[in-house]
């Protein structure tokens, strides 16, 4: 490749990298600026007098701290439940042949297309009649609609790669069906299980619509808390961006950990 073409290509890659990173950078930079600087026109490209003041105000005065805890409770709770329910199902799909297997499989996958608003409308009425509005439990349950299919998909794939010969050896050692699943299959499928758990965590942590409709002040999750800033004329942009950074930073770390599997998770395994 000629020198010119190489330079052009390097420039294109850098420009696209900048495009991907800039909005994220802008959020973090704004969160560190003083209020006056955040509203300055023209804007400053980096914080000239960096301060963590907005983080303090957001976390302590504006109640973002408790909402992050709510998000954590919900995301961990729903991920645990999705694994508890999904792992045996994934194992059955990987190891057994039975009638309607393919239909069941497609039913799981079709949840990827389901618009949350279709479930949110009726679930609001159900939650209200059961007194579940503003509880962690209602979100933990509802998030299963998208977590369970992802866990089942990724883990079934992983269980298939566990050699059947190991099962047979385990039978000779006197392990029952459940013993094989628990003692052999789960430890060997651990990498896939971790990936699916991270996906489940990210999806739940990021969710807004269900949380907006089903939580009130008591169990408000972090994305909902972020939207509550958005009223009135003078928006506290420093605090808003500090909140955004606090929400996004942990999931970014998780997403980078599973970046090799990102496409698989987002396409329900159709593209590897």
């Amino acid at each position: 490749m000629s020198r010119g073409a190489r330079l052009l290509r390097a420039a294109a890659i850098l420009a696209l990298t900048l495009f991907c990173l800039f909005p994220f950078y802008w959020m973090v930079a704004t969160s560190l600026k003083t209020t006056a600087e955040a509203l300055a026109s023209p804007p400053t490209l980096w914080p000239h007098a960096p301060t963590l003041e907005h983080y303090r105000v957001a976390l302590i005065d504006k109640g973002v701290g408790p909402s992050l805890v709510n998000s954590l409770i919900v995301a961990v709770g729903t991920t645990g439940l999705a694994l508890a329910l999904g792992l045996p199902a994934a194992y059955a799909i990987a190891r057994y042949e039975f009638r309607l297997k393919r239909d069941l499989w497609f039913w799981f996958i079709s949840h990827r297309m389901l618009s949350p608003i279709c479930v949110a409308l009726p679930f609001f009425l159900i939650a209200r009649s059961l007194g579940l509005i503003d509880t962690h439990l209602v979100l933990i349950l509802l998030y299963l609609t998208f977590n369970l299919p992802v866990v089942i998909w990724i883990c079934a794939d992983q269980f298939r790669s566990v050699p059947v010969e190991l099962d047979e050896a385990a039978v000779i050692d006197g392990l029952g069906r459940f013993g094989i699943f628990w003692r052999i299959a789960i430890p060997l499928a651990a990498p896939g299980i971790v990936v699916s758990a991270i996906f489940s965590f990210i999806f739940s942590w990021n969710e807004l619509l269900f949380a907006l409709i089903l939580t009130r002040a008591g169990t408000r999750t972090a994305p909902v808390a972020a939207t509550t800033f958005m009223s009135g004329y003078e928006l506290p942009w420093g605090e808003i961006m500090a909140t955004g950074t606090l929400i996004v930073l942990p999931v970014t770390v998780f997403a980078l950990l599973v970046s090799r599997h990102l496409v698989r998770g987002l396409t329900m395994g159709a593209v590897k």
Partner: peptide
């Protein structure tokens, strides 16, 4: 070729995908 730059772009692609949708809206408003 250019493997370092490519690795950088490959990692940067994860950032938009991981950003909470609601926060993308906040960033857009700003």
């Amino acid at each position: 070729g250019l493997s370092l730059l490519r690795a950088l772009l490959r990692l940067s692609l994860v950032i938009p995908l991981a950003t909470t949708f609601a926060v993308v809206g906040l960033i857009g408003r700003l």
